[in-house]
């Protein structure tokens, strides 16, 4: 970033751009959550599974502009997440709270991610969304935390909140936390 623009940014005159990586198993609700955040959010009738990835940019009230890389969660694309680790400042990991069966798969993927060399060196924060809170019989955030072994993450900041991707409920709370983390 040029000197002039970082000066303006520090004064809060222009918004700082932050790259965020959005991961999680397929069908967790990542794309749905992002759609709800877009300013010009046209209510989407149906979400198609993401083939590869998508980039969305949106502003928040926190003087930040988020550029979110919404990754596909399908098995064959999970190995490709790592291409984006070096250039993001935070990771959002979406868990499908209604999918107890695949919680262990999510845990595996999380572990692989945390063991990645790039991320071991970069202590960027992780925001967990326990999504689909509206589904009855789903896991609570603390159950999710238990199922994925989040308590074992000691070397970086993280938090978990319950969300509803369709209504957007709970997403704001999580982003507030993230904005605080990313403040200088």
């Amino acid at each position: 970033m040029g000197l002039w623009s970082s000066f303006l940014t520090s004064l809060g005159i222009i918004k700082r751009k932050v790259n965020i990586l959005l991961v999680g198993l397929d069908n967790a609700g990542k794309s749905t959550i992002i759609n709800g955040l877009k300013v010009s959010a046209v209510p989407q009738t149906e979400v198609v599974p993401t083939v590869g990835f998508n980039v969305e940019t949106f502003s928040t009230q926190h003087r930040l502009t988020f550029t979110v890389f919404d990754m596909s969660g399908q098995g064959k694309y999970r190995d490709l997440w790592e291409y984006y680790y070096p250039d993001v400042e935070a990771i959002v990991f979406v868990i499908d709270a209604s999918d107890k069966i695949r919680a262990c798969v999510a845990r595996d993927e999380l572990e692989t991610m945390l063991q990645n060399k790039v991320l071991r060196d970069r202590k960027i924060p992780i925001l967990f969304f326990a999504n689909k809170m509206d589904v009855e019989g789903g896991m609570s955030p603390s159950e999710c935390s238990g199922a994925l072994g989040l308590e074992e993450i000691k070397d970086r900041n993280w938090t978990i909140c319950a969300t509803n991707g369709i209504t957007g409920q709970g997403v704001g709370v999580g982003l507030d936390w993230l904005a605080e983390e990313l403040k200088y």
């Binding site: 590869g52 990835f53 998508n54």
Partner: peptide
């Protein structure tokens, strides 16, 4: 390899 990665972005 894995060039289908950009399918969603191009579709958009």
């Amino acid at each position: 390899e894995d060039v289908i990665m950009v399918t969603a972005s191009l579709s958009k």
